[in-house]
Amino acid sequence: MSGDGTMTRSSTMSGERRLKLPAPNALVGGTLIAILLAAAGTGALWTPYDPLKLSFREKLVAPNALHWLGTDEFGRDVLSRLMAGAATSVWISILTVTLAVVMGTTIGLFSGYMRGWTDRVIMAFNDALLAFPGILLALGLLAVLGANKYGIIVALGIAYTPSVARVVRGTVLSLREREFIAASRVMGNGEGFTMLRHILPNCIAPLTVLATSMFGYVLLAESALSFLGLGVPPPAPTWGNMLAGSRPYIDQAAWLGIFPGLCISLTLLGINLLGDALRDKLDPRMRGSR
């Protein structure tokens, strides 16, 4: 994108002020996400115990010095499984959100910019999909694609595309009536250039907000799918299937549910805070002044 020049130049301009006083939401969110990424990275290479190794002698052990977060019904170490699961869960979420944002933005941009019949047909289709509960749609798609990591990504990606398309289209509709779009046409710029140079960058703020909240939904949806037995198949750990698997033991071994749940919540919190900070950072209007 040709907007790169802007970003670097103006961030150096207001850079000193930023460095002295980073926004608290960026600080907290950034820390949480850094911890998450570190855990996911480590988890992919090394874990305290083998996350898949069964040990019936140690099943349902409460958190102690050996197993910091306890063990599950098969005696597997919860901390190890959380670390290994982090990589899977985060990877699924990132790819799903990226897929939904790319497809949704393309559809919304095209639909909103063209208007007329193109818009009406695309949006009628889109709304039909939107009226379908996302999880149900994903279930149907998974039945076709098969329950594995990539099946989940594609199914959830498609399920979340319509809401992105809606948001982008709405933003585009209001943007294209602004005078700077008319100005771009009068300059002689082509439609495609106008779309990419003037409309797309101005969609970033609502997209950032949407993408960060969607990240959370995807984590939860992945859990729900696992819960229904259509997620990443066991024994491979994900936060979702760990949470789902904890259900029968909730009264004897609460830690089985608490720790994956805590991981999901903290990740969501981190992503949302970071998303807000990112949106402010990317918007020239929020920079400087004050």
Binding site: G5, F180, M187, P201, N202
Partner: peptide, 27 residues
């Protein structure tokens, strides 16, 4: 060329003044 009525909506908020003024020269 055209000058529009509302100076608050006729300039792309995400571009610098230099970029805005230079844009027509692209062609």
């Amino acid at each position: 060329q055209m000058v529009f009525q509302d100076p608050y909506s006729s300039l792309d908020p995400r571009m610098t003044i230099g970029q805005l003024v230079g844009e027509p020269l692209r062609l």
